[in-house]
């Protein structure tokens, strides 16, 4: 058994609102061990980003966060951010401070956490830019973010995240805002860095292809809850939750007939302000019964861990 790094237990995130609280995340748990790669998938509003931002302590002040977040056995603190646990975000265009030079933005983690001198931090920043394959790295150090392309900016974000050699990297939809060829480059870069450094990685995405490519373990979220989790090989071939199955079916396959229909999931993902009672997926589920409408199923262990009253059994 490898050592546990990040332990998230019974995490919930709520936002007080006039018409009743908005439940963004409900009872989410994750135990991340050294060196593994976990993919978190789900539609927009499923609570993926919210759960991880809450774990990092990065949610706005009015968010009500409950549950326990521990790192290496001790409570998670601000000093761990950027030092042990680093995070990169969805939108590289707006995630860098516009009036600070790229080099300075990488160097400030180094001077803060590792107490490096200005010159040493700059040298290390240059080295980091080269590691994330930024072209013309020396010149980039003194450029401002608006002088770089989106892909370059995401590389700079990754360089910032890697600055202090973190043990955990959380990537929140790191490629969503980038065009397809750049997406592939950034994913290859992340996969390579993970391998070289043995970092644990949590990657949030709604692209199952990404998960299949890099993750060891997958968590599927729906309506703010974890509905299924398991090894990639199991979950992506024979998912047990009807939602996971529908999600997989909605991916076009290369061997599908060309004129065949695209599979979709009928209806809309639920709004966190008005979650259906019981299992949040029941209005869209073909296997739903009365019990699904009244009671949320507990997560039960099995070939994959699944929270469903009527899981799809192995055929």
């Amino acid at each position: 058994m490898k050592e546990s790094l990040l332990e998230i237990d019974h995490l919930s995130v709520r936002y007080p609102a006039p018409g009743g609280d908005i439940a963004a995340v409900n009872d989410f748990s994750l135990n991340l061990v050294a060196g593994e790669c976990v993919g978190i998938v789900g539609e927009s509003g499923a609570g993926k980003s919210q759960a991880l931002l809450a774990a990092m302590g990065l949610l706005p002040r009015h968010a009500r966060v409950a549950g326990s977040i521990r790192y290496g056995g001790a409570p998670f603190t601000r000093e761990l951010r950027g030092r042990r646990v680093a995070m990169i975000f969805q939108d590289p265009m707006t995630s860098l401070t516009p009036h600070l030079r790229v080099g300075a933005q990488i160097a400030e983690s180094l001077t803060h956490h590792l107490r490096l001198s200005g010159a040493a931090a700059r040298a290390r920043a240059l080295e980091l830019l080269r590691q994330v394959q930024v072209t013309d790295a020396e010149r980039r150090l003194d450029q401002y973010p608006h002088e770089l392309s989106g892909g370059m900016r995401q590389r700079v974000m990754i360089a910032i995240a890697l600055a202090c050699n973190p043990e955990v990297l959380i990537a929140d939809e790191p490629t969503t805002a980038l065009d397809v060829t750049v997406q592939a480059q950034i994913l290859a870069l992340l996969a390579g860095l993970k391998r070289e450094r043995g970092m644990a990685v949590v990657i949030v995405t709604h692209d199952l292809g990404v998960v299949a490519g890099v993750a060891d373990r997958v968590l599927v979220m729906y309506g703010g809850r974890l509905v299924e989790s398991g090894a990639v090989a199991d979950l992506l071939t024979t998912p047990r939750h009807p939602y996971s199955r529908a999600l997989l079916r909605s991916m076009p396959r290369i061997d599908d007939p060309l004129d065949g229909p695209l599979h979709t999931i009928a209806g809309q993902p639920p709004s966190p302000a008005r979650l259906p009672t019981g299992c949040a997926f029941h209005p869209r589920c073909e296997r739903a019964s009365d019990v699904c409408r009244s009671r949320f199923p507990a997560l039960a262990a099995g070939r994959t861990d699944v929270a469903c009253h009527h899981p799809v059994e192995d055929a």
Binding site: M56, L58, R78, E79, L80, R81, G82, R83, A86, M87, F89, S95, L96, T97, E108, S109, H112, H113, M157, I160
Partner: peptide, 8 residues
């Protein structure tokens, strides 16, 4: 948010 994520 990025600056906060750095632990500053």
């Amino acid at each position: 948010r990025t600056a906060r994520a750095k632990g500053l």
